[in-house]
């Protein structure tokens, strides 16, 4: 269990730091989930071994979860990073994807906004 928590902690950090800026919020979410699982497994290890083991997985999981949250919320707020757009991501001092999507998408972006507005206008 200790080894698995360390492995998942590392996986969470790597996915959050490398893949999230490239491919958007889905990798950030995966990294976040992996890190949370690492934290839970390390807590179980610490309780089972009276805090003798599990420290590394715990720390790695906390770091991965923090980075995952930062990139998840950041990429979601930006909204331009998605797997469907490929590898633009948020690197390079500002996201170019938003303006490129707008100029390339044109009419289909209007359709998208109309669909979103019709859902937002609903009250019950």
């Amino acid at each position: 269990m200790n080894g698995l928590s360390i492995a998942l902690g590392v996986v969470g950090i790597v996915i959050s730091v490398i893949f999230a800026p490239l491919f958007g919020f889905i990798p950030a979410l995966i990294g976040l989930v992996a890190s949370v699982v690492a934290i839970v497994l390390s807590i179980n290890t610490k309780k089972a071994t009276n805090n003798a083991e599990g420290g590394a997985g715990f720390v790695l999981g906390i770091i991965g979860a923090t980075l995952g949250v930062v990139f998840f919320i950041g990429c979601l707020a930006c909204g331009a990073c998605s797997a469907s757009y490929g590898a633009w991501g948020c690197l390079g001092g500002g996201c170019n994807a938003a303006s490129d999507i707008e100029s390339a998408a044109g009419g289909s972006l209007d359709e998208l906004n109309k669909a979103l507005d019709s859902l937002k206008d609903l009250n019950f």
Partner: peptide, 27 residues
């Protein structure tokens, strides 16, 4: 309730941009 009431529009939104669709549901 909004998603169920306009389920076909939500599916169209999901197909066009799943990020915005997920953001609407869980944002």
């Amino acid at each position: 309730p909004s998603i169920i009431a306009k389920f076909d529009i939500y599916i169209d939104l999901f197909k066009m941009d799943y990020v915005k669709a997920l953001d609407f549901a869980f944002g």
